[in-house]
Design a protein around this nucleic acid. Structure first.
Lengths: 287, 287
DNA sequence: GTCGATTACGTATTACGTAACAATT
DNA sequence: AATTGTTACGTAATACGTAATCGAC
């Protein structure tokens, strides 16, 4: 049997070209590498190197061994990763979401239904990244803003959100009764960080706007920014927090279709039984 | 990094159910296995076992680790096998053939064209097995009796062979001027061993015949068998060896289509340049 | 002189064995 | 009593380091 440390050393030699360079990166001595490569050839029962007096290079067989060695080591890494993920997933539910609002809904709900498990969540900008994470066991559950089609997954729409423009009184835009995003391209706009796909949407529809990024509980941001610049707010936020400072501002409907989103709760098809209690609750859920 | 001997020991435990049984099959002591499994959990940073006082079993994570461990070890075996095959193929050409006649043609031809390389050959009964061996680098060259379609291969027809029945003078069948194989089903028939697909053909078309198997240079066979029983001979054999003992027998054409075969010389498409000299010679070849 | 590879030899890690023990059947 | 797993401790294999040598640039 050929142990993996020998393959790792072979790959290092292949990468750095000489035994001495590879040995430095492996933090072992040069003679140790010489011995390892001799042992590798011995175990393979095959010549892997061409040796000149003070030069050693891979022959064709050696190059093939490097290719296969990469595969084997990759699979070992994959194994460890998957086993750790599986172990973690038996103790935690990791939620990936495209926006903050679904996280605020789901985390308490999950904590309640799966009271023995730890709930962790993160927000990503792109649905594709979330689906990839779902496939690779990084997430057990993801919230998307576009209905996915492919894959062995289980999907359920569970709520909507709509974006509005929030303009300070006295601002030139404050008199508008409705607006297109293109109308405010080029302006200074206040934006929260960690808003997932909304950020992508803003970048796409407002390529020339200047965004003042503000982390959610940034007191400075609230004081310095919110008085002067237009920002965004959603129907869900207003309903939940009706008497906040936003009330002193003008709320202007946005006419672009894209600001009207439906959220989809997605799990792997094989997990559908595990999440059946959740989906049942979501069925009667209205954001 | 998790070394492979740990995975091998995990698989042995999974297979034999207890540490002590596994340790016997691994030819190591029981405490050694205990330590290895503890080390494995340590390296994975994950619990793989449920431990009672004198009982240890895999938990769900452990079962997953077994699955992944199998994959990794299989790939390591595959790596060694492929590297050894590649090394061998740089020094030898291994021919797989469906019948003996093409071997007699090809081996001298290959020796002549590829004079630095060792030529080895073997005969297999089924074309599929030969194609599989070609794909898996077991053979660099195969001779088939049916034109293959699928795969990344390079094919050239190079010769034909036709089978006749050879009947001793005085045998009841000796007066026939032509015959179907079905006419001789149930008879005693003399057959050489190592005749590849011809044997499959006989078994299929003559399910009730009794075959007296005779290895090629079996003097006893020549004496005891050839005088009494019908056997087979081909046009190629008769042309090459016109004045042998077969001349004292009656040669009867067989009317079944299947006794008329064309041989196809096949290599991997990626090897077509290597075998171009061979294919050029085969182009003008007549068996 | 510097750099790279190999050989020789010593050292330190570690995988494994032996012995003893605890718990279950 | 026989079997199974763990702990403690010693041993032996081996991966690695240091020093020395040889060749190439």
């Amino acid at each position: 049997m050929i142990e993996l440390y020998l393959l790792e050393q072979l790959l290092a030699f292949s990468e750095y070209g000489t035994l001495s360079a590879a040995s430095k990166h492996l933090h072992i001595s040069q003679p140790a590498l010489t011995h390892s490569m001799q042992k590798l050839e011995e175990l393979m029962e095959v010549k892997l190197f061409e040796r000149q007096k003070n030069r050693i290079t891979l022959n064709e067989t050696g190059k093939l061994a490097v290719e296969y060695g990469k595969k084997v080591l990759d699979q070992e890494k994959e194994m460890i990763e998957q086993i750790r993920l599986f172990d973690k997933s038996s103790r935690t539910i990791t939620l990936g979401a495209c926006a903050p609002v679904p996280v605020w809904d789901m985390v308490p709900l999950l904590s309640q239904i799966y009271s023995g498990l730890t709930i962790s969540s993160e927000i990503r900008n792109r649905d594709e990244e979330l689906l990839e994470g779902l496939e690779k066991n990084k997430y057990q559950l993801v919230i998307l803003h576009e209905k996915p089609s492919n894959g062995e997954i289980y999907v359920q729409a569970y709520g909507k959100e709509r974006l509005f423009l929030s303009v300070p009184e006295g601002h030139p835009l404050a008199e508008r009764s409705e607006i297109y995003l293109s109308d405010i391209d080029g302006q200074n706009l206040l934006l929260y960080t960690e808003i997932g796909f909304w950020y992508e949407l803003c970048r796409q529809k407002l390529p020339n706007a200047h965004f003042l990024m503000m982390s959610e509980h940034d007191a400075f941001g609230e004081v310095a920014g919110s008085g002067a610049f237009p920002s965004f707010v959603s129907d869900v936020l207003m309903r939940r927090d009706p008497n906040n400072s936003l009330m002193e501002k003008k709320i202007i409907p946005i006419l672009d279709n894209e600001v009207n989103v439906t959220y989809y709760c997605v799990c792997r098809y094989s997990d559908r039984k595990k999440f059946e209690p959740l989906y049942r609750r979501l069925g009667s859920y209205k954001i």
